[in-house]
Design a protein around this nucleic acid. Structure first.
Length: 503
RNA sequence: UCCCCGGUAGCUCAGUCGGUAGAGCAAGUGACUGUUAAUCACUGGGUCCGUGGUUCGAGUCCGCGCCGGGGAGCCA
């Protein structure tokens, strides 16, 4: 109802706000100089009973389905993305545009609807909106070829219409889950006293060792400048040297770690690997905390606490979307999250893992041998079958791990760790870093890597070096694990993979 | 990049022995209905991924290419 004072509880909306997509926000408090006749509500607030029955309100969104009844009304399922469920709008046939517009609405049409919130006399919902005004903001020009029909689509097909797939139940739910997880990650680190460090996207380091790099260049592609030897002369490139998109913020964030103690990065990373699997993207997001005065065990504890915190947030904040995933995508996804939150992660040394694999009553394609890198089949056996919950594997042979990982006293293993999630595999890879300059240099020499290229990194070991540790959490793999969506291409808005950068 | 499988209506798929195209859903129209994956009837809808070949004749068989899926490697 338009009682004085009620509007004040909600931010008033202007046309400019609507154009900016702010119309459905529910920020409290008035905005000076902005006038509007009626508050605009998100569907979430209505379905959460935050709006009293009898209130006259406006909602805005897109039609999911329309059903007509000869009782003199139509039912419109209206969706605005604020929650999983659609709002049922009752459109009585005495609306002035009922015959001319309402009965022709199809999936995807954009509407502004005003009316009264009433108790539903149907079964599927508690409340509905009895419309007294329906404005069609945008029609679907050819309903027959509208790519998102009100029916199940394959995810493979939806990738070909990535600009419209967020209108589906699944991808919309993924978007809310992704946001919720991102917020929970930031909240966790903030509450733990970690600083978010914005490490560079462009890097000159061509041997971070984590994968193939994308080159960043402004040189003429057809006739690039050449050196006298005939090589491309990157001296004339934008940065005066060869540069790439980063594959990891780790080395840079270590510098801030050794000044601010507790730091993390959260941003996109890029790998030009020709990987064609359900777990790899050329552009993906990664969370990389780095903690000073921390050893591998503190690092593992942080990884476990982080995952438990964000999964708990999921259970509390996105129950609607989770129940959809449990119903349609992966029956076990909710109990899996509850189990992870409530039970300790298993910790296991690489040596022990090898012993267990040797004794497994199952043949492996790759025979078990100390010193080998664990294959997918081995990780799967350990995490899925032997342990059955998240598993932290630690202390791998140095030969299969990166140069910056701290050498253990046995001289054979390094303080590395992988967190393996059942059904997904590795979602976290991390280590305690080598803080001793002489040991680090020996490793660089051993691997034939240039010490001068790493001078600034070596400086950190020269000036007030301390033990420190960190890890990388694959954000898309985490979303996959939470939702049961089996392909990471379906948990990032616009996936980039080999031979595919559409949209 | 390697191995295996697939590409037919807007979508999901069937298509026998090589003989010229089918279903469900979606869409349109109508009937019915406080409906909710509504139901029922009718109607429209096809570059059978592309290309070359075999054949009297190719959705079907063969070569090459492109795209997609599953697995592997790389990794997060």
């Amino acid at each position: 109802m338009d009682q004085p004072g009620q509007n004040a509880a909600f931010r008033k909306i202007s046309g400019a706000d609507l154009a900016n997509g702010m119309g459905s926000s529910l920020l409290p408090g008035p905005m000076p100089g902005v006038e509007c006749s009626m508050p605009v509500h998100t569907i979430a607030t209505i379905l959460n009973s935050q709006v009293s029955l009898g209130c006259r309100i406006t909602v805005q969104g897109w039609v999911r389905t329309r059903r007509d009844s000869k009782a003199g009304l139509s039912f419109i399922a209206l969706h605005d993305g604020s929650c999983f469920d659609a709002l049922q709008v009752i459109a009585p046939n005495d609306l002035p545009n009922y015959l001319s517009e309402v009965v022709h609405l199809t999936a995807g049409c954009a509407l502004r609807v005003s009316g009264e919130v009433v108790a539903s006399s149907g079964k599927g919902q508690a409340v509905e909106l009895h419309a007294d005004q329906i404005d069609v903001a945008g029609w679907v020009e050819d309903p027959e070829t509208y790519p998102i029909a009100p029916k199940p689509h394959s995810f493979e097909y939806l990738r070909t219409v990535a600009h419209l797939r967020p209108r589906t139940n699944s991808i919309g739910a993924v978007a809310r889950v992704r946001h919720c997880l991102a917020q929970a990650i930031q909240r966790f680190f903030h509450e733990q006293g970690y600083l978010w460090v914005h490490t560079p996207i462009i890097t000159a380091s061509d041997c971070e060792g984590a994968g193939e790099l994308f080159r960043v260049s402004t040189l003429d592609r057809v006739n690039p400048p050449r050196t006298v030897e005939g090589h491309i002369d990157f001296e004339q490139d934008f940065f005066g040297r060869e540069t790439f998109l980063t594959v990891s913020g780790q080395l840079n964030v270590e510098a801030y770690c050794l000044a601010l103690s507790k730091v993390y990065t959260f941003g996109p990373t890029f790998r030009a690997e020709n990987s064609n699997t359900s777990r790899h993207l050329a552009e993906f997001w990664m969370v990389e905390p780095e903690t000073a005065f921390a050893d591998l065990h503190a690092n593992a504890n942080l990884a476990e606490a982080l995952l438990k915190f964000i999964f708990q947030a999921m259970l509390e904040e996105r129950a609607d979307d989770l129940s959809f995933f449990a119903q349609r995508i992966d029956k076990t996804c909710i109990q899996r999250l509850e189990q992870v939150v409530n039970s300790p992660f298993e910790r296991m040394a690489y040596n022990e893992a090898i012993r267990i694999l040797e004794q497994a009553d199952r043949p492996f394609e790759f025979p078990i041998q100390w010193g080998m890198d664990l294959q997918s089949e081995h990780e799967r056996y350990l995490a899925d079958d032997y342990v059955g919950r998240p598993l932290i594997l630690m202390n791998y042979p140095k030969k299969i791990k990166s140069f910056y990982m701290r050498l253990n006293d046995d001289g054979q293993t390094v303080a590395a760790m992988d967190v393996l999630a059942p059904g997904i595999g590795e979602i976290i890879g991390g280590s305690q870093r080598e803080e001793r300059l002489d040991v680090l240099d020996a490793r660089l020499d051993e691997l034939g890597m240039s010490k001068t290229a790493y001078n600034w990194y070596r400086d950190l070991r020269r000036y007030g070096s301390v033990p420190h540790a960190g890890f990388g959490l694959g954000f898309e793999r985490t979303i996959s694990y939470v939702t049961g969506m089996s392909n990471v291409r379906d948990v990032i808005p616009f996936p980039r993979t080999p031979r595919s950068a559409d949209f």
